[in-house]
Design a protein around this nucleic acid. Structure first.
Lengths: 221, 221
DNA sequence: AGATAAACGTGATAAAAATCTCGATAGGGG
DNA sequence: CCCCTATCGAGATTTTTATCACGTTTATCT
């Protein structure tokens, strides 16, 4: 199977969330591409193409089996496998992520948190132990951790990323408000909330006068 | 000037952050498109095209004036104007956003927070008063608020969005883990962190075997 | 001053993403 | 049983986004 592109992965996630939350799991447990398309504001053809890309076939006049779709997405995105992660930086955002229980359904479990601050180490946040930074390297090695969630201040983000990678981390989910550079073979996903602000500020500043050709709902993501 | 597309706005934000943080503001205060390109992993031509789109011209053999670039981006993205926002839902993520002081430089100020929880109302979070939900409508009207930051649980997000819009809100920055549907003329920016998880989980599950055609650094977002 | 080279602006081109079109398939009603 | 139509699959097309190619501008060196 060909490499799935990022846009496809993100749409798969959207389909998955929609189908998990929706009432389509009641009998007859089928959904059409048009229904998904309408709910998520995506073209129906696009939905079918994405499904086709992960080997899902629908049936004419019926649609797709919801359970089968969810299962296929789980397999593709690896939600069935348990991924243990550590979190680095227990500021407010780090704390919020530790407390968020929604990751478990995607196979993600945060097994430890690390911080420089002596005041914090030793305590627990949302049932997760906060350890001192010097304990990080042995912990990663011992538990063979592959993913780190970076929620530190901007100034130390790159330095910590380097440290994480030298210890064997293969993916970094970066919430620090700066870009992090990594060698090939390691994945970084920068989650800059400030990018969203560019669109919002622009919209508020330049008013609502977009081309009025469409009266449909306006949605971005 | 033509409508700027979302990808362009996001890149402008990245340029702005990079130039604000960087040392290019020292004399001679110039930067070349190639320098920006290298730092942000964007093609240099793209940088020049984006600058050209907001009316910025560089000079051959020199590059661009850093101050002028920053000013132009600020003007385009409206960072010079003050945008007052309210925050709805003072859970952990809401609290983290209230405490984040980085928005001010983009002209965004959170002037009040609202919550259903009687325990929280009346208190202050990071210097921002938490008010009861029934005070929301009069507050929006009185202060002519145009932007709301939505950090509620999934179940109430749509209902509150509807309420916000009926009161005159023109843009919603949605951090609730669900999609929010709005009428035309209102902007929603959904900030789903779980979308990032799709890419990370896929990478961890399917290993690092991407096409090895490029030995450059791997960076997304 | 003229040669040189770094950097720009922009039209042309390529690649990626989204959308359209249409023949095929399969339930449901007569 | 056969028609009708909702739905699918996938090739063709369009739109958007990114990259290339190349002529122009401008500081620096001799």
């Amino acid at each position: 199977m060909a490499q799935l592109r990022r846009v496809v992965l993100e749409r798969l996630m959207r389909y998955y969330r929609f189908l998990s939350e929706s009432s389509f799991k009641k009998p007859p447990q089928t959904v059409t591409s048009a229904q998904i398309a309408a709910a998520l504001d995506i073209d129906a053809t696009q939905v079918r193409k994405d499904f086709s890309a992960i080997g899902l076939l629908g049936i004419g006049r019926v649609g797709f089996d919801v359970c089968e779709v969810c299962r296929a997405i789980r397999v593709q995105l690896g939600f069935d496998q348990q991924h243990d992660a550590i979190l680095v930086g227990t500021g407010r955002l780090g704390t919020a992520l530790l407390a968020y229980s929604g990751f478990e359904r995607y196979g993600l479990r945060i097994v430890a948190a690390f911080d420089f601050d002596r005041e914090k180490t030793g305590s627990e946040i949302a049932g997760c132990e906060v350890k001192p930074m010097r304990a990080m390297k042995p912990f990663i090695r011992k538990h063979d951790i592959k993913l780190a969630i970076l929620t530190t201040p901007r100034q130390v983000a790159q330095k910590l990323a380097d440290r994480l990678i030298s210890t064997g981390i293969k993916a970094i989910w970066n919430f620090a408000p700066t870009r992090v550079t990594v060698p090939s073979g390691v994945l970084v996903r920068d989650e800059h909330i400030s990018l969203g602000l560019s669109e919002i500020a622009y919209h508020l500043t330049h008013g609502t006068e977009r081309e009025p050709e469409s009266d449909s709902q306006r949605q971005v993501s």
